[in-house]
Amino acid sequence: MSNGIAPTQSEATAQLSAEGVAIWLDDLSRDRITSGNLAGLMATRNVVGVTTNPTIFAGALAKGSSYSAQLGELANGPSTPDVDAAVWAITTRDVRSACDVLRPAHDASGGVDGRVSIEVDPRLARDTAGTIALAATLWQTIDRPNLFIKIPATVEGLPAITATIAAGISVNVTLIFSLERYAAVIDAYLAGIEQAAAAGLDVTDIGSVASFFVSRVDGAADAALASIGTPEALALQGKVAVANARLAYDIHTQILASPRWVALAALGAKPQRPLWASTGVKNPAYPDTLYVTELVADGVVNTMPEATLQAVADHGVITGDTITTNVADANATIAAFAGVGGDLAGITEHLETDGLTKFVTSWEELLATVSTGLATAQS
């Protein structure tokens, strides 16, 4: 892991933060926590949150020796090691520790930032009841107010989001690709807040973000455009994902002006912020800061892999709001994509299915890595 960070504040990330963009790190490992790297990124790169997923945990467990001691304790305990229980113990410990590191950012922002996200077992993505139960158990186990429970935005996940929010548990809704599903996610959040308020809960303590994936949309859209092959189609490459995200933000702003939201805001409810996820550029021909500098607006979150974060810090050019002034252009881009034969609905549906498959594969890799670690650690 590359952890070399200059002990100075980045002007670009400071500007990004000043524009109202919350910078979160899309990575976590025990070494980041114990080495002081995470605290360093908070101090020099304006990081105020962390997101995790099964892929991140699988990668962390596969590297170095940071987990050796805990694996040894689990392997040589009084009972036969259980792989699922070991994964639970390892990941919840990391997230709890990260929550503690980020607690100052949470307190300073009035509970808005300083958040750390952990995902429910992705094998439950189509299981509403199972997701609700596991979200509650994760929340109780980690026991930190600045935790987010990640729930995928599947059709089955939507009622789980509402129920979890209604129980007073903060949620990071993940794996959103389409505007239609994003609108449904917003509705699920608002319904949850309404139910929480009706039950007498303090809604000011409940937070949420909606993770709208970016680069994966361009990957699929660009491939479709290349297949179409016309000059009009090729001219749209690298533009669809940003346009899609900008229109998502436009939906967000419309909701904030709605009577339904105004009533909830009067109770002290926090807006569900759009979060730009999958912001590492997949195509090396594109600027490595593309999905950061082109998605700047007040009240959004951008969660970045470290390489993207450091690229922004090194040479990112922040020019102010790049979303609200470009909504008309975004609508034109999406219309043009359809006009050349692009099927955005089909692409986003495939991306959700593919994303779930990848998360399950990563979870199984995580289980295998921990299983090997337990076997190695047994004395």
Rank of each mutant, 00 (worst) to 15 (best):
T131N: 07
N3Y: 08
P152G: 11
H315R: 14
V217M: 14
Q140L: 08
D26K: 09
V301E: 02
D329E: 15
V292L: 05
V240L: 08
Q140I: 01
T128M: 01
A245V: 03
A191V: 03
V292G: 03
Y249I: 09
R246S: 12
T322Y: 13
T361C: 00
P145L: 04
I347G: 02
A6F: 01
P122A: 10
G219W: 00
D205E: 10
G20F: 08
A160T: 10
V185M: 04
W261L: 07
R260S: 10
A39R: 11
I56S: 04
R126V: 00
A191E: 12
L74N: 02
D26N: 09
T353V: 08
V300F: 11
H252D: 15
L234Y: 08
H315F: 07
E194C: 05
T348L: 00
V83P: 06
T376E: 10
L247T: 02
A266F: 09
G20I: 12
G49E: 11
I56D: 06
V301C: 09
V203D: 03
A85S: 15
A245P: 12
E232L: 01
S258P: 07
D84S: 12
L367A: 14
T308S: 14
A85K: 13
G200R: 10
S170L: 01
A375F: 06
V292W: 09
R93Y: 11
V185D: 00
S170R: 01
K270F: 04
N172V: 00
G64A: 12
A297P: 12
L267I: 02
A338D: 15
A345D: 15
G316P: 07
Q310S: 08
V340A: 02
E119F: 02
I118N: 05
P78C: 02
V240K: 06
A184R: 05
N326F: 14
L25H: 11
V83W: 09
M42W: 05
P122F: 03
N172M: 05
G20W: 14
A196L: 12
T92W: 01
A184I: 00
S258V: 12
G111S: 13
D100A: 15
L275F: 07
L225V: 10
S211F: 03
S227Q: 15
A263V: 04
P305M: 09
I142W: 02
A311F: 01
A133H: 04
A60P: 11
A338H: 13
T128K: 01
L366S: 07
M1H: 03
A160R: 06
V301L: 11
P152S: 12
A166E: 03
G373K: 10
V203S: 06
A85R: 14
P271S: 10
G268H: 07
T80K: 13
A269W: 00
S65K: 10
A311R: 04
A160M: 07
D27Y: 12
